[in-house]
Design a protein around this nucleic acid. Structure first.
Length: 911
RNA sequence: GGGCGGAUAGCUCAGUUGGGAGAGCGCUGCCCUUACAAGGCAGAGGUCACAGGUUCGAUCCCUGUUCCGCCUACCA
């Protein structure tokens, strides 16, 4: 029989798509509630349907695939459920841009046709990310691919909305909300990103109504909103101003007089001038102050953040300013100019402040007064807090738990309505007859004012239950995309139907996600899961890091520092990328990714490839499986190390330490398997008559095959390719058992002998370099150890010493070694003697000895000092003292030998 | 403003019951030794941010300081 041969280096492109297609075709990733094994389920954090795979996805998905493949191999009934979300605002923006290019608008198209365009766009681009996920090797059950706007998931949204409404947990009301003037929609609090900017603090004179020569000076960062002021507040305890409370000021640039009120909540005595203008329609604090003092609200901005004509009129603004329809920034300039001209601007100072920006389009958001739908969140949050407090849900790393709890305990009602078309339209209708007062036309748009009475229903109502009218208007708003994402762990499993999938896989096992959506998504899933399933949606939440560039900067298209995972996969192979991300996934630390790292792990893949090639070259011949104890020293040693590796990798995966699991595999494969084991067994393999051949070949195959299975979750492609090539049983590595540690493989004595071998070979090789012997040159060595047991062990490993040192090894007492022309190296009782020949510069060797002596002296002094300390001896544990004494003895012996060796060298040098 | 995390070799990072400081990459030297030059072997390189404290003993525990991140927050 001839064994198959592999190419000299690993070519990922040649194997990846082939295996993925086969895995998928054969249904290896398909899950069923009927399958055997304890269920293990992960629902994927749904990427945007129109997006493409970025390196953050690559990390997130790689870690999930590692868990999923590992658990599948462990025999669990595994379901990894993939899907996408509709990202309402983002998707609508994209489609609107396309329309604009065609000279169209969504208004001109109408709602139904617009939605059709959205679906077309989804059909055109929605598969992009799915095919990219497949390229990454993700073993999702693609038969169960879900989309947040699918029929079934939309049913779940309706069901949840109506039930929350019926429970009084959803309400409609007019509030000051965050408004994006570009997207023209409300945003929830957490969809606003705060950014520090350098602004200005303007000090403005507001003349007193009954004494216009005197004025109250207020400080503001937004002078243009002064036109909408309806009061000025001072602190009731402020001796400077308290006599003014109850009086009025003349609001500059307007015809209005506004009151001076005392407010200890709004006003900070220390800040600014101690007097604050109150603009209830344009500031969250002022809104609340307005409530406290029953102040009118004058809205002076349009939805597009332009000065509003009606509002300006209501405010009594000086019409000569010509502010109508001016954008807010422009209006600010004009207002400041005019205030300056007319002597109302006292001074301007620099001021650091935070502005809120839309998380989708980065436009500055405006507080905007409008009727919106809200989820009353407190009753939902309480059980979600308890689930984490009691440990029903574990957040990993634990450090994020407080972050979650803190946010949940201080949670605000959730604004869920969005004034866009892409999304789940709110299932609420208004009777035109009953709400005639509340339904008005503004700018050719029908607006339903606060106070309208909605009919909330899963199905379209035929008539008004109050008056019987059939003239019903559906609410035009859609729901926040995160509202549907919050149902993801059960809506994807078929809820509200009672499916077998729900029964088997809910609660899911683990959620893998980034910190950035802990509040957006994770917290809301927990609340909704508890409310509608009566149980947590998942048991573990693993939060991974953010991927940054090599300098630690956030990756962004505008900075041009993005690492494209697809490019990387093409260049270095998918396995290399996956292994890189896994090995850098240390908890609580961001990943600084540089391409060199990926290249390094590409090299690792190549190393594995060549180890397999090596194995295949020597595999011809019989193989015999002996009990471990009867195998050769190298075989026993590698089995013991493999056993240890299996144990460690499994334990690290159980605690989500992907980095340490990867590091353990890397070290085992490269530095134990390749560097030592394969080298140690070469003599046996290369001699066809060696009696240990059959057993060694067996161990070689056994360990290689096991290692491939152990590595498979991390590097699925190369492990399958190699596994298929070497002797194996079964159709695919995907379905094989994950290795379990086997105590009969453990061989501590062998490992101790190996440590001696490694140390001895190290000294010999150091000697070779010091004496300029070429690696291949056969030279004689003397070896000795001053510990009798260790000396005995040297005899046991003599043949391996000879092979690895490429020389002749004579084990005998160092006092009997030749005195001349010999370099002696010493380490912890071990001595190695190497013949000096030719014209060699011995100074290098002498330097090494001198350095080692100096280190020895320093360390002995330190330890000896501790031992001479009476307190140390009386208080330190006995085993620590014994160990210190032992070390001092060893160092003393080494010192003597080193000094002798140095002395001999000096004699040779004639100095 | 509040909270959290980090500061260890040139770079990126490991290092939990406190007792001799590690890895990967990079760097230097030698080697194309029939698995692998995407490689092998050897080696250089660190008052573990700073200052105190607890302890026989601190990279590790406590306090404070500095610097860097992140989250969160309505000082106009």
């Amino acid at each position: 029989m001839t064994t198959p041969q592999l190419d000299k280096s690993y070519d990922p492109k040649a194997v990846e798509s082939r295996w993925y297609q086969l895995w998928n075709e054969r249904g290896y990733f398909h899950a069923s509630p009927d399958h055997a094994g304890e269920p293990y389920c992960i629902v994927i954090p749904p990427p945007n349907v129109t997006g493409s795979l970025h390196v953050g996805h690559a990390l997130n998905h790689s870690l999930q695939d590692i868990l999923i493949r590992w658990r599948r191999m462990q025999g669990r009934n595994v379901l990894w459920l993939p899907g996408t979300d509709h990202a309402g605002i983002a998707t609508q923006n994209v489609v609107e841009k396309q329309l604009m290019a065609e000279g169209l608008s969504r208004e001109s198209l109408g709602r139904d046709q617009f939605i059709e365009r959205v679906w077309n766009w989804k059909a055109a681009s929605g598969n992009t990310i799915v095919s990219q996920q497949k390229q990454l090797g993700e073993s999702c059950d693609w038969d169960r691919l879900r989309f947040t706007m699918d029929e079934g998931l939309s049913q779940a949204v309706l069901e949840v909305f109506v039930r929350l409404y019926d429970d009084g947990l959803i309400y409609r009301g007019e509030r000051l909300i965050n408004w994006c003037p570009r997207c023209l929609t409300a945003l929830s609090d957490i969809e606003v990103e705060h950014e520090d900017v350098k602004g200005k603090l303007y000090h403005l004179r507001y003349p007193l109504a009954d004494d216009p020569n005197n004025a109250l000076v207020v400080a503001t960062t937004r002078p243009e909103t002064m036109l909408g002021d309806t009061a000025v507040a001072v602190h009731p305890d402020d001796p400077r101003y308290r006599h003014l409370i109850g009086k009025k000021v003349l609001l500059p640039l307007t015809t209005r007089e506004i009151p001076i009120v005392g407010d200890s909540i709004l006003v900070d005595l220390e800040f600014g001038t101690g007097a604050v203008k109150i603009t209830p329609a344009h500031d969250f604090n002022d809104y609340e102050a307005g409530e406290r003092h029953k102040l009118p609200r004058i809205s002076i901005l349009t939805a597009r953040a332009e000065m509003d004509e009606v509002g300006l009129h209501e405010a009594g603004a000086d019409a000569s300013l010509n502010l109508a329809l001016k954008p807010v920034q422009k209006a600010r300039t004009i207002v400041v100019e005019v205030l300056t001209e007319r002597g109302f601007l006292v001074k301007t100072e620099d001021h650091k402040m935070a502005v809120g920006k839309c998380y989708r389009c980065k436009t500055v958001v405006e507080p905007y007064l409008s009727p919106q739908w809200f989820v009353k969140i407190q009753p939902l949050a309480q059980p979600a807090i308890e689930a984490v407090e009691t440990g029903k849900i574990r957040i990993i790393p634990e450090g994020w738990t407080n972050n979650y709890l803190g946010w949940m305990r201080d949670i605000k009602d959730w604004c869920i309505s969005r004034q866009i078309w892409c999304g789940h339209q709110i299932p609420a209708w208004y009777c035109l007859a009953c709400n005639a007062q509340q339904i008005v036309n503004v700018d050719n748009r029908t607006v339903v004012l606060q106070g309208a009475k909605p009919i909330v229903s899963k199905t379209t109502p035929v008539h008004c239950p109050t008056c019987g009218s059939q003239q019903l208007l559906r609410d035009g708003d859609v729901l926040d995309t995160w509202f549907s994402s919050a149902l993801w762990p059960f809506s994807t499993l078929g809820w509200p139907e009672h499916t077998a999938e729900l029964k088997a896989y809910y609660p899911t096992s683990t959620l893998v996600t980034g910190l950035d959506i802990l509040f957006f998504w994770v917290a809301r899933m927990i609340m909704m899961g508890l409310k509608f399933m009566g149980d947590v949606p998942f048991k573990d939440v693993y939060i991974h890091a953010l991927v940054r560039d090599a300098e630690g900067q956030k990756m962004s298209k505008s900075k041009g520092n993005v690492i494209d995972p697809l490019h990387v996969m093409n260049q270095f192979g998918t396995d290399a990328l996956r292994f890189t991300l896994a090995s850098m996934a240390s908890p609580g630390r961001d990943i600084k990714l540089a391409e060199e790292r990926i290249e390094g792990y590409r090299n690792f893949a190549n190393k594995i490839w060549n180890a397999a090639r090596f194995g295949l070259m020597y595999l011809d011949g019989t193989r015999t499986a002996l009990p471990p104890a009867q195998r050769t020293f190298p075989d026993q040693w590698i089995l013991s190390r493999l056993n240890h590796t299996i144990h460690t990798v499994t334990a690290e995966l159980e605690s989500y330490r992907f980095d340490r699991a990867a590091g353990t595999l890397y070290h085992f494969i490269w530095h134990e398997y390749c560097d030592w084991y394969l080298e140690l067994i070469k003599p046996v393999l290369q001699d066809p008559t060696d009696p240990n051949g059959p057993s060694t070949r067996q161990t070689l195959v056994e360990t290689l095959e096991t290692t491939m299975r152990l590595l498979h979750p991390f590097m699925p492609f190369i492990t399958e390719e190699i596994w298929q090539t070497i002797p194996h049983q079964g159709d695919s590595i995907v379905l094989q058992n994950y290795p379990v540690s086997n105590h009969t493989w453990s061989a501590p004595d062998t490992e101790r002998r190996f440590a001696l071998l490694e140390q001895t070979i190290g000294l010999i090789r150091t000697g070779r370099v010091l004496l300029n012997y070429p690696p291949g040159q056969h030279i004689p060595f003397y070896v000795d150890h001053d510990d009798r047991n260790r000396q005995e062990q040297l005899h046991q490993i003599q043949q391996h010493l000879a092979h690895l040192s490429r020389g002749e090894v004579e084990i005998k007492a160092s006092k009997d070694w030749p005195a001349a022309q010999l370099l002696r190296l010493v380490m912890e009782g071990l001595s190695v003697g190497i013949t000096v020949s030719g014209d060699v510069d011995l100074h290098k060797a002498l330097e090494r000895l001198a350095k080692q002596l100096a280190e020895n002296d320093k360390e002995s002094q330190r330890i000896d000092g501790k031992l001479k300390n009476a307190e140390f001896v009386s208080k330190a544990p006995p085993d620590v003292i014994t160990e210190h004494q032992e070390r001092v003895r060893t160092m003393a012996r080494d010192r003597e030998l080193l000094a002798g060796s140095a002395q001999q060298l000096r004699m040779m040098l004639g100095t």
